[in-house]
Design a protein around this nucleic acid. Structure first.
Lengths: 155, 155
DNA sequence: CAGGAAATCACCCGAAAGTATGAAGCCATT
DNA sequence: AATGGCTTCATACTTTCGGGTGATTTCCTG
């Protein structure tokens, strides 16, 4: 019910306005009956008012034409925020730890530096890197980095 | 004159219809004067008719409302073809040949492979790479590649 | 619980990479 | 003609990297 009121507020208002006008006209009828041609003027006024109302209604109720404009914005992406690309990562079968090592390699760190950074021994890093090279079919760290970037594993 | 008629045909028609209606009402006035509440019904009819006319007019004459929806489509373009970025290159003091070596390094090639590709000896490539490391303040090829990319020397 | 993947570490060896130093030819600018 | 930068090459030496093999621990899954 409340919803109905809200939806038909306009129609109700319109009806109320009409009723009020009728009262007004009735009153005018008694006041200006003596005037010659009062009736014609009267009808003209009504016609004008309701024409205006009709126009107003039409304006209010008319559904707007929707025009959709699609603007294609071409952005040359400098550095798209990189996410490890889980898909390619899993596809190559590279583990989290291996990826860490790979990322530090790409930064230009030596195996010893990576070992220090990750708090493991140099031998561990060597094992990891060997696995990485196997999985990426690389024989050098530079090659591994290059391939990883091509696969979207590294930014 | 003729042009004016054509442009305002609608307005003229509207005026004519109004006049006709007035005549009609005048006639009805005499016919239904006896009826009680005839006046209200009369005014109601007029109101209805002119409201309809108003709506019709508005529909006919009003400029259609246009709602414009702008959808921005973001297209991430492919990496633009890389140009060596002469500025950074000169800034680092890296020569053409050195850049060639650097680029092949970044591809993951070994010094020997680079030497074969450029038809020079392995020692030459070693000299070049040493110079490159000096100029980029790197001590490893991976580091050199990383720094070169950061400087825009490599794609 | 057994099996397998992941992570850790060790040792050895050969290959590749990097450092240092010297030198020669070419080319352009002074 | 001389100077300096670029390219080329060489030798000798050190360090780092990569390959191969093996072992242990932890954690997860069938």
């Amino acid at each position: 019910m409340k919803q109905w009121f809200r939806n038909n507020k306009l129609v109700l208002l319109y009806g109320l306005a009409l009723a009020l006008l009728l009262f007004l006209l009735r009153w005018l009828e008694f006041r200006f009956l003596i005037l010659d041609h009062a009736f014609e003027a009267y009808v003209g006024a009504i016609a004008l008012v309701f024409t205006g109302l009709g126009i107003w209604l039409a304006m209010k109720l008319a559904r707007p034409k929707v025009e959709t404009i699609i603007i294609e914005k071409t952005i040359i992406s400098e550095a798209p925020p990189f996410s490890p690309n889980e898909k390619s990562l899993a596809d190559a079968g590279i583990s989290k730890r291996e990826w860490e090592v790979l990322a530090l390699m790409a930064k230009g760190m030596s195996n010893q530096e990576i070992a220090n950074q990750l708090f493991v021994s140099l031998n561990t890093i060597k094992t990891h890197s060997s696995r990485i090279f196997e999985k990426l079919e690389a024989s050098r760290r530079t090659q591994a980095i290059s391939k990883a970037k091509a696969l979207g594993i590294l930014p």
